[in-house]
Simulated assay, not measured.
Amino acid sequence: MPHEIALTESRTLRESVMDRVEVLDKVKALTLLPDGIHLTTEGVAAYFEIHKEAVHSVVRRHREELSLNGMVSVQGSDLAALRTVNLTIRSAERSLTFPQTQGKVRLFTRRTVLNVAMLLRDSDIARRVRSHLLDAEESFRGQHQGPSAEEFAALDARLCRVEARVAEVGAVLQELGPLLNRIMDRLDRVERRVDATNRVLAALADRVHRLGADVRRLDHRVGRIEQTLRRQALRES
């Protein structure tokens, strides 16, 4: 496991553990603004028990990195809106009020405070945070390490058994192949016979329909002949 000072020297190492903000409260309670999200420069300095100029120094040297991890500066209407939010949600548990300055206020999130902890060299709190951070990371890796040689061997044996079953299934499918082909051929023949029968039935239905039309026409002609014969019989009588 690397020494805690390695975090102050390697940005890559810092980025690999940047999400583990829970270690902050394990070292010391973090006093946030009433919104429960931000700290001011003074709040960060109080957490690390240093002068706020030390925080300014870290910001000057690592502004880009800290900005990527949540540090922002607010002023004007944004500052007024943020002050209103903080004053509105202030509770008995959070007696700290929002700064009343009309200038610019720099704000830090938990993630940014953790970033500062990995950059501060002259703070015992920061050193303890780094140590807790590396311990937590080492514990996490121990819990999520890969399988042992025995576990790997057991997995390999299970995989071999699965492969053997797959081979058996493949052999059965090869035996079933010709039978399935014969069944498909028979189904094709049945379908062709059914299609032929349907065509014959359709032709018969058409002929029946035409025959019905002929019968109706014949019946109409017979009716006319009967009417003619009745009229003639009436005239002769």
Rank of each mutant, 00 (worst) to 15 (best):
Q102E: 02
G76D: 06
A81Y: 05
G70L: 00
S57D: 15
L79S: 06
E65Y: 10
A81D: 13
E53G: 00
G70C: 04
L87D: 11
Q100I: 12
Q100Y: 02
V105Q: 08
R94V: 12
S91G: 02
V74A: 03
F98C: 02
E65R: 03
G76C: 10
R90F: 02
E64Y: 13
A80M: 02
V59S: 00
R94T: 11
A80E: 13
F98M: 01
M71R: 11
R83E: 15
R94Y: 11
Q100W: 03
R90T: 01
S67D: 08
L66A: 14
I50Y: 13
T88F: 02
E53R: 10
N69V: 00
V55F: 01
R60Q: 11
L68S: 02
S91Q: 01
I89M: 09
H51G: 15
G76V: 06
R63L: 15
G103S: 06
H62S: 12
V85G: 04
G76W: 05
G76K: 01
A80I: 12
V105T: 04
L79R: 02
R110E: 12
F98I: 08
V59Y: 05
L79G: 10
M71H: 01
E93N: 12
L82Q: 04
K52T: 02
L68I: 06
Q102L: 10
T84E: 11
G103T: 03
V58G: 03
R111Q: 07
V58C: 14
S57A: 11
V59H: 08
E65H: 09
V55A: 15
V85S: 00
E64M: 09
P99W: 08
H62Y: 14
A92R: 11
K52W: 07
G76L: 05
